[in-house]
Each structure stands twice: as C-alpha cells, then as structure tokens.
Design a protein around this nucleic acid. Structure first.
Lengths: 208, 208, 208, 208
DNA sequence: TATGAATGAGTTTTCATTCAT
DNA sequence: AATGAATGAAAACTCATTCAT
C-alpha cells in the first residue's frame, strides 16, 4: 500500500515535470531561449517560480531535458518507422519523411531543434550528445545497409554524408519554422520525394 | 582644406568603426553573442564603452553590421570566383569551394555565420536579408545556367534545391567551427570533390 | 488556515511597501527626487535594490505612490478638522491652519508637496490628479458654503479663487521647507491669523 | 581700429551666447531641465556640443544664466511699468498685470519660472538670488508706499504679504503654463481685476 | 512539496564634460 | 574660437536562483 501511494506520488511528480517541460517548450518557441523568463514558464505551467527549481537545477537544464525527452521520442518514432521498410532506399525515404513530418506536426519542437539549440553554445559544444548520436546511428545504419545491399555507392564518405543529409533536413525544417504556416500532407509528400530524388540521384541529367 | 580635414576625420571614423567590428567579431567567436559584454568588445577594440555607442545604437546592431560587411565581401569573392568558370558544373564546384574555403580561412566569420547569427531573433526573424539574397542569387544563377546548358535536370525545384545546397554547406562549416582544428588545403579539396559528386550524382550506384 | 497565512503574507507585503515609501520620502527630502538613487532608498529601507522593483515598477511610481498615500491622509485630516466648524469663515481658517500645521509637522512631506512633485513631468503634466481634486473639493465646498451663508461675496470667481488660496499656502509652505527651521505653535497661529485676515479682508484700510 | 574689431568680435560672442540661451530656453520648456540634453541644445542653437562649454561652464549655469538674463529684463519692464503709476493701488494692479502679461506672452519663460526653477534644488536653496530680491524689492516698495499713502493697512506683515502675492501670481501662471492655450488680452484684464480686487478687499461681503 | 518574496550581481546604455585638432 | 569624437562614471532595472514559511 505504501508502495502504491509512493508510486502514485512519483507519478504525479513525473506528470508535473512533464507539464513544466511542455510549458517551457511553448515559451521557448515563442520567445527564444534567452528571452524566456523562468517566471513566464512558471506562469504558463501554473506553478510558482520556485517549483521549477524542484524539478530542474538550472534554466539550461530545462532546455536539455526537453531535448533529451523529445529526441528520445523522435528516435523511437524514427526507428519504428524505419524498421517497417526493408530496402535501404525505402528506409532513407522514410527517414526523410519522418524527420520532416514530425517537426512539421510539432512547430514548437521544430523551433527548438532548428533555432534554439544552436543558441545554447554550451549545449552544442560541450554537451555529450547521446541522443543526437542515436539519431545519427539510425541514419548511418541506413547508409551502411544500402552499401551492403549494393544500392549506395561503396566510396561514400559516411561521416560527410550524414552531415549533408542532416544539413538538408535541418535547413528545410528551419525554413518551415520561420515561414510559420503549416505544410499540408501533400506538400510534405512532394518535398520528401524531391529530396529523396536529389539525395539518391543528384541534379545532373542522365547521361546516355 | 576644410574638406580635406573633414574627409580625413570621416576616414578615421570609418577605420575605427571597422576596428570595433573586428574586435566584436573576435569576442563573439570567443564568448558567443549573448555572453559577449559590450565592455569586453570595447576593451578588445581599445576604446571606451561609450565609444561603441557612437558607432552602433544597440548591441545587436554590431552583429548585423558585421554580417552586412562580411557578407558583402563574401559575395564579391564568390562572384569573382564564379565568373572565371564557364560551365555550370565547374561554377557549382567553385561555389562550394569558395564557400568552404573562405569560412575555413576565417574561423571567426564561420562562427558568426553558422552559430551567432541564429542567436539574433531580430536577424533571423525580422531582418529582410538583402545580402543573403544576393548570395542566393549567385547560387540560383548557377542552377538556372546549368539547366540552360542542359547539364542539370529540367524538373529541379529551385527554391528547394538552394535550401538543400545551402544546408549542406552550412552544416559542414558548422562542424568545422565546432571542431576548431583547421582543415588543410588538401582536405578541403577532397571534401569539395565529395560534396560536388554528391550534389551532382547522388549516392546511388550507377545502373547499367 | 490557508487564508490566514495568505492574509498574513499580504499584510507583510503591505507593511514592507509602506516601509519603502517612508524610506523614499526621507531620501527624497534629503537628496531631491532626481538625485535620489534607488540604491540609497533600498539601503534606507533595509532591503535589496531589486526588492524595490517588486513593489514599484519605476522610480517615478514611488513618488506618485507617496503622494497618493499622503494626500489621502492629508484629505482625511482636513475633512475631519473642517467638519467640526459650522461657519464658512471658521472652516476657511481651519483649512489654512490644518494645511500649514500638517506640513509644518511633517517636513519631509512638505518638501515632497512643494518641491519634489514639481519635478515629475509625468505627475505635473499627465497625472490626472484625483487626490488633489479631492483636496480642492474641500476648499471649493467652503467657499460655496460661505456664499450660501452670505458671508463671502457672490461674485467670486471660484476657479480663480482656489488657485489663489492654494498658491498662498503652497508658497508659505515652500518658504518654511527652504528655511528648514520648524515653526512654533504660536508662530503658526499668528501666520494663520494673518493669512486669514488677508484672504477675508484684503490689504486695504477700512473705508468709512 | 583694433578696438573696433575686438568689440565687434565681442559683440559676436555676446550674440552667440544669447543664441544659445534662447535655444536652451526652448529645449528646457519642451523637455524639462533634467531631460534636456546638452546635445539637443547645441543642435537647436546650431553649434557643436563643445561650443556650449566655451560659453557656460556647466549645464546648470545655462539655467542660471537664463534666469539672470530674463529676470533682469522682467524687472526692467516691471519697474518701467510701475513708475508710470503714482498711487500704490494702481501700482499694485500694474504689478499684477505686468507679471501675468509678460509670462503669458512668453510661454517658454513662464515654464522656466514656474516649473523648471523649482527643479534645480541647488538653485532654489543655495543660489543667492539677487534678481529675485530685486523683483521682491519692487513689490515691497509698492506695499510700503501704499502704507505711507494710508491706502494699505498699517499692520500688514510685509514679508508674509509678498509671499502671498507672489504665491498667487506664480500659481495662476503655472496653471496657464500647464493649460498651454494662450489667454486673450481681455481674459488677462479680467483676471487681473479679480486678483486685484481679492488682494485689496478679500472675499468677504461688505458689512454695513 | 510548494510557494513567492527577496536577493544582488550583472549589464546595457546614457550623457555631461573634455580635449586634440 | 569651434568642433565633435571620445570618455567612463553612473544608475536603473532585470532575473536566475535561493530559502523561510
């Protein structure tokens, strides 16, 4: 019984923590990390300023926690979507599609990933970025798989390639964030196809 | 005579302004924009804090002024390098090479372009980016030229393509900025070739 | 119980606000409004600089808050003193006496009313002066009452008259503030009589 | 010849000084003394910031100089107007009229006298106010003259009386300054008559 | 655990005044 | 004498973080 109460209490804590993170995500997206005041986040979450510090040690920890949490979710979705596909070529396409769809669905998150995260210098430079490495592992896995399947060229510089692909997706997402209007499902589909075609075949005309 | 004195005075002002911008660029690179104190910039420039405000109205204006100035230079170099090449294919390669070389040469500038500028809400959201549009015009020009020369596919979505290419170059530069070690000329050459190959031909193996 | 705690907390806030206002009044009197630093007020009140800003948004708000508070008290005393008198002639005399006595008693307040308030552009130009209007209403009431009682002339220009009477009292108070030495009860009595005589009968010799 | 050149040079200096004072008066009236920047005065006067300091040692000296200059002029007009009248009763009326007319004519000056001068605490408290004493001497002279002529009561407390009369005129002027609209000649005449009646006869009905 | 009042270090910006030209 | 660029002290105000209740 004591256990149950305790676990229910802990569950409440987890929920409140989640609640604060969601509030912070909205405030960060609206104001930018540096302009976001703890008091604004507290108000948005409906708690007192001090309460924030029961759940997070420093302001930056909120940013990191959101990233951790969201990136975990992001990776989960990504992996689950990818494993449905067997050929590397369709996996890659799915990777592109999931990346863009999820961020398009969640504007706050897209803003965080493409804009805010670069603002926390310490974050970019010093934070040992396990979750981002997991994201990359998925991408790298697809590439290597494609090479094994003899679909992708053997001479690809993988560490260069993932940067290029991530750069492409990040830039498109950034554009959508700044544009602010949401894309339709068809528009996303179309863009995914074009990106996919670009990545696989490049821009040159087919030589005879 | 009055004219000469006046123009010499104005010239001094221009020089001092330049001096402050260079100092600010170094401080921004070292500390990040938000952590850079006006007093640190003033000290680096060897002037009083108040002097900064003779040349710039607000701190953010310094950031934007550096961008304007450097981007102008950047575009000049870019255009001059491009016009030496006649075929769109070699122009594109040159575009990649110049972009990466210049930023690799100038670490401070690369940091500003890839990291600091995204910190300025005003810059990224409200600033109608004339210099950046000029940069894009060059890139778009190359693409269209390539299409006219029947080298590049006719069905390319240009506004998507430039984002992808810019995304690639931006991401590679960002990586180099964070890595901090400078690339050798050979390494750059190698990366340029690989990026160029990727953009033109994609990642798939040649089908028979 | 929650209520009680809350109300006790709120009571403490009210007290501290009061405490800051009293401290500010002393500092304003010593240094003048413009020369009074927030840090000096905070020190005088025994709180941190930032604490001031929990209670007042801007420095000028402190000035206005003191005025509001003190003027309310001032009006209360005035009305209570006046209503003891039945004839307009004795009411007027009491009005003069109370005005001068209260300000003579409270040097800080006199300084605020006669000197500091004129320093606040916002106060003097934009502030719709409810408390001052209440003060005037009392004065106007006495005049009209005197007219009804056929004691005061019927052809008096009331809006001119209150300015004259207020001008007289303000000027005498200003003189005492600048003089710094306190008046004795007898001196005040004497001055009140003379002012009263002046206002009621003017300066001319009685004509036969 | 040397003399002439020198005197012409000195005359130019005097003119430029005057020019700066007029500019400062306008700026002080528009912005208030504390909000008036030296650079704004310099711009209004069409000179460089530094030039101001050739003519005045400190910012406050400009305020004092304006006061000296304008008060001298004010006194001159006052005396010249007064000496035309022979009876103390008409001199007093003329005093009231000149005071109000001049300040009504010159809004900037009225603002300076009624609002700005009280802002410079040092000015009010420490400045040995010769010009103001001259102004008072005129007023006192009229009162004493009236007593000699047996027109004004013998038991008047002169040092109290001048404060009352000055307080009245100052308050009416202040009201006009804040009101901002200019009075017509008829309105002034009317007010002068009413003030005069008040000062001479008070507010009571004539007893039989 | 939750609160929110209190803290005070920290930073941008202003502006009277100076002084080399 | 005139200029106006340079100075740098000064001060209002902010806000992440703490801690008594």
């Amino acid at each position: 019984m004591g256990e149950k109460i305790k676990s229910s209490r802990e569950e409440l804590k987890v929920q409140k923590r989640e609640h604060i993170l969601e509030a912070a995500l909205r405030i960060f997206a609206k104001m930018g990390y540096n302009q976001s005041k703890i008091s604004a986040i507290a108000k948005e979450a409906g708690v007192a300023d001090g309460t924030i510090y029961i759940y997070f040690k420093k302001k930056e920890d909120i940013l990191i926690a959101i990233f951790e949490e969201k990136m975990t979710l992001f990776n989960t979705i990504l992996e689950s979507d990818i494993c449905k596909e067997s050929s590397a070529i369709s996996q890659l396409k799915q990777f592109i599609k999931t990346h863009l769809s999820v961020l398009c669905e969640n504007h706050y998150l897209a803003n965080l990933f493409t804009v805010e995260l670069r603002q926390s210098t310490r974050f970019i430079k010093n934070y040992s970025n396990i979750k981002f490495r997991e994201y990359l592992a998925v991408l790298k896995g697809i590439i290597v798989e494609g090479q094994n399947q003899k679909i992708f060229r053997d001479d690809l510089n993988i560490s260069l390639l993932w940067k290029m692909i991530f750069g492409i997706l990040d830039q498109i997402s950034l554009f959508w964030v700044l544009k602010k209007s949401k894309q339709t499902q068809e528009e996303i589909e179309q863009v995914v196809n074009e990106i996919n075609h670009f990545i696989t075949n490049g821009i040159m005309t087919k030589e005879v």
